[in-house]
């Protein structure tokens, strides 16, 4: 049938584009994973094939480098940051939506305006601050400055504004206090947005690079991004196999989280972006 021929032709081009793009996206992954199983000696000769496939590089990465410690550090830092942002951003957003007080809107715009200021442009005084607070080279230095975020407040305020006004009125009639209304109604109602913020703040913290590089000097507290930097500069004799294995150890957990969290992430992102 005519219709089907047309459809088939369209699909041919679609598949062609899809496959080319897939190659572009997958090649660095695939090559990275693949070389992590090859002996470094053969990689340095430029070989991409070897009969000696093994987990040796992984064993080496785990036993000879603090990669697992780095992962653990990042996990601690990111989880703490995420939890703190969930609590403090939601509380602030609550105040901006459900509390009536003088200067509320002005204050909100001031908070909003801070979204315009990149953290990167403020590292110099911030470094001096954490130094004088004696926070350097500790988990706290990577959590405390990020306990809250203007973006998170902004996003949750948008979500809370969607809450039907009747719910607040009903809560007033029932005599719920602000803490009760916040905990029992608002937070459950905005679950999806909270999950999105959780994912967001976790990833943002996980991907921090400049700040931990400036403020941590020991493997005990160094997060994984700077850990990989450390490995890469130390292994200057190009132990590619082990470096690729370390990268794989780092990326696999996030890929798994992404794979299962994709649904929430997508809907949340679009709540922020589209509505």
């Amino acid at each position: 049938m005519m219709e089907n021929q047309v459809a088939k032709q369209n699909h041919f081009w679609q598949y062609l584009i899809l496959i080319l793009l897939t190659i572009f996206i997958l090649i660095p992954f695939v090559l990275g994973f693949w070389t992590s199983f090859l002996p470094t000696a053969e990689i340095s000769k430029g070989a991409l094939w070897s009969s000696h496939l093994s987990f040796d590089n992984y064993r080496a990465a785990i036993t000879q480098t603090p990669i697992l410690r780095y992962l653990f550090n990042s996990l601690v830092i990111s989880v703490l940051t995420m939890l703190a942002q969930l609590v403090f951003c939601s509380m602030s957003a609550y105040a901006f939506v459900f509390l009536k007080f003088k200067g509320r809107d002005l204050l909100f715009y001031v908070v909003l305006a801070t979204m315009m200021l990149p953290f990167e442009a403020e590292v110099i005084p911030n470094f001096a601050t954490v130094r004088s607070l004696n926070l350097l080279n500790h988990y706290a230095v990577m959590v405390v400055p990020f306990l809250t975020s203007a973006f998170g407040i902004f996003m949750l305020r948008q979500a809370f504004l969607q809450l039907p006004e009747e719910l607040k009125e009903a809560a007033d009639v029932e005599g719920l206090s602000h803490w009760q209304f916040y905990g029992r109604v608002v937070l459950p109602y905005a679950k999806i947005s909270l999950l999105t913020l959780a994912a967001y703040s976790f990833l943002a913290s996980w991907n921090q690079y400049l700040w931990p590089m400036l403020t941590t000097f020991s493997d005990d507290f160094r997060p994984v991004q700077d850990g990989l930097r450390q490995l890469q500069s130390q292994e200057s004799f190009n132990n590619w196999g082990m470096i690729q294995a370390s990268a794989a150890i780092v990326v696999i957990p996030t890929l798994i989280v992404l794979f299962f969290g994709q649904h929430y992430f997508k809907s949340g992102l679009n709540e922020g972006a589209v509505k």
């Binding site: 991004q225 990268a247 990326v251 992404l258 794979f259």
Partner: peptide, 8 residues
């Protein structure tokens, strides 16, 4: 997929 890849 690349969303799960950190900068390092």
């Amino acid at each position: 997929g690349t969303m799960g890849v950190s900068v390092s």
